[in-house]
């Protein structure tokens, strides 16, 4: 039996809305995100635990985590 491949979440970032306040980067418990220039980007998707803290605390409606 083959081992099931770990399914990765999908993090959607709306770069037009992101203002680069770095709230999501600082509050991410597993350090998934980073600031790349003026907007946020995904650095290490495999570490994401789908806790949704970035989504909950983003003031700009710019980030959402899909399963």
């Amino acid at each position: 039996m083959t081992q099931a491949v770990k399914k990765l979440p999908r993090i959607e970032i709306n770069e037009k809305f992101c203002k680069g306040c770095s709230i999501c980067v600082d509050f991410c418990p597993t350090d998934v995100l980073e600031l790349r220039g003026p907007v946020v980007a995904v650095k290490n998707l495999e570490a994401c635990t789908r806790c949704q803290l970035c989504d909950l605390r983003c003031p700009d409606f710019a980030i959402q985590v899909f399963d």
């Binding site: 809305f17 680069g20 770095s22 949704q52 983003c58 409606f61 959402q64 985590v65």
Partner: peptide
Amino acid sequence: PFDYNKYLRPNKLPHIWCPGCGHGI
């Protein structure tokens, strides 16, 4: 994830609040 667009006027976004302003949250 929660679908905020259902309650928003998408053509009015992004909002005018500064980066890091708590009002959006």
